[in-house]
Simulated scan of single mutants.
Amino acid sequence: MHSEKASFGLKLAAWGGLLFLHLPLLLIALYAFNTEEAAFSFPPKGFTLHWFSAAFARPDVLQAIRLSLQVATLATAIALVLGTLAAAALYRRDFFGKQTVSLLLVLPIALPGIVTGLALLAAFAGLGLKPGLLTMVVGHATFCVVIVHNNAIARLRRTSHSLIEASMDLGADGWQTFRHVILPNLGSALLAGGMLAFALSFDEIIVTTFTAGHEKTLPLWLMNQLSRPRDVPVTNVVSMLVMLATMLPILGAYYLTRGGESVAGSGK
Rank of each mutant, 00 (worst) to 15 (best):
residue 2 H to C: 11
residue 69 L to G: 09
residue 97 G to Y: 03
residue 56 F to I: 08
residue 86 A to D: 01
residue 221 W to K: 09
residue 13 A to H: 01
residue 15 W to S: 10
residue 201 S to C: 06
residue 129 L to Q: 06
residue 107 L to D: 09
residue 141 A to R: 03
residue 195 M to P: 02
residue 177 T to I: 09
residue 97 G to Q: 01
residue 167 S to R: 01
residue 80 L to F: 06
residue 192 A to I: 11
residue 178 F to P: 10
residue 251 L to Y: 02
residue 7 S to D: 06
residue 141 A to C: 09
residue 67 L to K: 07
residue 21 L to D: 00
residue 173 D to H: 02
residue 5 K to N: 12
residue 7 S to L: 02
residue 193 G to V: 07
residue 113 G to C: 08
residue 133 L to R: 14
residue 95 F to Q: 06
residue 224 N to P: 00
residue 85 L to Y: 12
residue 46 G to Q: 11
residue 51 W to Y: 09
residue 253 A to M: 00
residue 209 T to S: 15
residue 76 T to M: 14
residue 33 F to S: 01
residue 200 L to G: 00
residue 134 L to S: 06
residue 157 R to Q: 10
residue 40 F to G: 13
residue 198 F to C: 10
residue 28 I to E: 02
residue 87 A to Y: 04
residue 72 A to C: 02
residue 186 L to P: 03
residue 181 V to W: 11
residue 94 D to L: 12
residue 110 A to D: 05
residue 146 V to C: 08
residue 126 G to M: 11
residue 106 V to Y: 04
residue 205 I to V: 14
residue 202 F to K: 04
residue 109 I to R: 00
residue 11 K to V: 08
residue 155 R to P: 00
residue 134 L to N: 06
residue 211 T to R: 01
residue 21 L to Y: 05
residue 65 I to K: 13
residue 246 T to N: 06
residue 71 V to P: 00
residue 88 A to Y: 13
residue 146 V to R: 05
residue 172 A to R: 15
